[in-house]
Each structure stands twice: as structure tokens, then as C-alpha cells.
């Protein structure tokens, strides 16, 4: 059997003495499309950083594709939250994307023709090849997000993480992005963190809700239990955007 894409067992993490994540268990099969929702400060980003190996858990184990998070690095793609702060940094779209091809073992060696071909292929795929010489700071939010996705894809990852990919981008991009991810999901396991529960149900195969603890629901529906845990005040189960979509009714709603 193929190893799980993600396997977390009894993971606890605290920051400055405050418990951020408590007894998190999650097993995700390969080929899944997981949406992680939850309130701000609920531990979504911490959970992602633990999975990427940027943070280490206080207790519990994490395996990605059967490996330690840091060892799985080259099999995992990561699209960080849209960064708006580094606008003046003198770097072109091409150079940002090439970064995705870096590895520890390649220090001191230049980029190869193979690297450049791969970058060309992926930049064309996300529609950014014609902007390759542009400084990244001059692009719009959606264009920059495409570049970060390209950077994550140039190593042909088996597992792709995206942190709030639709923050500060226009609605049109949002639709394009999820269509793109849906096509990509045929070969790649995808995990998306989002605060926007509107986009969740229509695209994702399963949902996890994080607010210190984690509730996992296979089958792409937001349960009342998740809503109760994540959002202490009553929430209308209505999706954003036009036309308004009312989310599937579910037992207990």
C-alpha cells in the first residue's frame, strides 16, 4: 500500500507556554484534496509549519509520504501566504521560480538546462512565461501567486501545500486557481489552508477544521461541529460570491 500523504499522531505544540495545538491526529491518503479551515489564531499556520518541518512538535510524530518532514522536502511543494512585504527586492519572475529547483546537494553548482526547461514548462502552464523578466514586485497579487505556485511545482512534488492562496487576489483568479488545482489534483495530493469557508465545499474532497484541536471530515462537507468549534458566534452557512450558494445541509444543521 502507498504510504499516507500525511500522518500525524498525537501532535502537540505550544508557543511561549501557550498550547497552540492539542493531540492532533490526521491521516490523509494520497490523491486527496484537503481544505483546512479555522479561525485566525486557531493554529492553521502552525499546523502547516509543523508539516513542513519548519517547527518541531513538542510531542507526537509527523510523517509526510512515509518520511520525516524535513527528509520529504524535495517531494513536497509549498506556496506561502501571498507576501506583500518584499516588493522592492530586485529579483525577476524567472529567478524566483528557479529557486524551487534548489536542494542542499546542489550548493556551488549552477542551474542546468534541465532546470531552465522545467521552469519554462511550468511558467507556461501557469500563464506567467511572458512575464519571466519582470521584477516580481511589479506584478499584481494574483500574478505573484501564480509565480509562487510555479516555484512550488518545478520539482514535480507529490504533495502540495498552499497557505491562504486567495488572500489579496481578485475573484477571477480565485476561480481560475481552483480549476487549476482541481486538474492538478489528478496527480498531486493538495492541502489548502483557507479562512474562506465559501470556497471549501465545492472543490475539496475533505475538510479539517483547526482550533487548537483538529476535526477531520472525509467527504468535503463542513459539519456543525466544526462550525461550533471554530466560530463561537453563530455563522450563516452561506458561501461568498454570486450567486450565493447555500452549503449542503448536513445532519445536525
Amino acid at each position: 500500500m502507498k504510504p499516507y500523504a500525511i500522518e500525524m499522531k498525537n501532535v502537540c505544540f505550544s508557543y511561549n507556554g501557550d498550547l497552540v495545538l492539542k493531540e492532533v491526529n490526521l491521516t490523509l491518503e494520497q490523491g486527496e484534496f484537503l481544505g483546512i479551515i479555522g479561525p485566525n489564531g486557531g493554529g492553521k499556520t502552525t499546523l502547516l509549519k509543523l508539516m513542513l518541518g519548519v517547527l518541531r512538535p513538542d510531542r507526537g510524530t509527523i510523517r509526510l509520504l512515509g518520511e520525516e518532514p524535513h527528509d520529504a522536502g524535495h517531494r513536497v511543494g509549498y506556496v506561502p501566504q501571498n507576501m506583500d512585504f518584499n516588493r522592492n527586492f530586485p529579483i525577476s519572475v524567472m529567478d524566483v521560480t528557479l529557486m524551487g529547483r534548489l536542494k542542499r546537494s546542489r550548493i556551488g553548482k549552477g542551474y542546468t538546462l534541465e532546470d531552465k526547461d522545467k521552469v519554462q514548462e511550468i511558467l507556461k502552464k501557469v500563464g506567467m512565461w511572458k512575464y519571466r523578466q519582470r521584477p516580481i514586485g511589479q506584478l499584481s497579487g494574483g500574478q505573484r501567486q501564480r509565480v509562487f505556485i510555479a516555484r512550488a511545482l518545478v520539482t514535480d512534488p507529490e504533495l502540495l501545500f498552499l497557505d491562504e492562496p486567495t488572500a489579496s487576489v481578485d475573484h477571477e483568479f480565485e476561480t481560475d486557481l481552483y480549476d487549476f488545482l482541481k486538474a492538478l489534483n489528478k496527480t498531486v495530493t493538495i492541502v489548502v489552508i483557507t479562512h474562506d469557508i465559501g470556497v471549501v465545499s465545492s472543490h475539496m474532497k475533505s475538510i479539517a477544521c483547526v482550533n487548537k484541536q483538529l476535526i477531520f471530515h472525509k467527504g468535503g462537507q463542513i459539519t456543525q461541529k466544526m462550525i461550533d468549534m471554530a466560530y463561537p458566534c453563530p455563522v450563516d452557512l452561506i458561501a461568498h460570491g454570486l450567486p450565493h450558494r447555500v452549503l449542503h445541509s448536513h445532519k445536525g444543521v
Partner: peptide, 9 residues
């Protein structure tokens, strides 16, 4: 952070 995830020391 990205550099760390691809294994740069």
C-alpha cells in the same frame, strides 16, 4: 522559510 523547506542550510 521556503528556502528551509527545500533543504538549504
Amino acid at each position: 522559510e521556503f528556502s528551509f523547506t527545500v533543504g538549504i542550510p
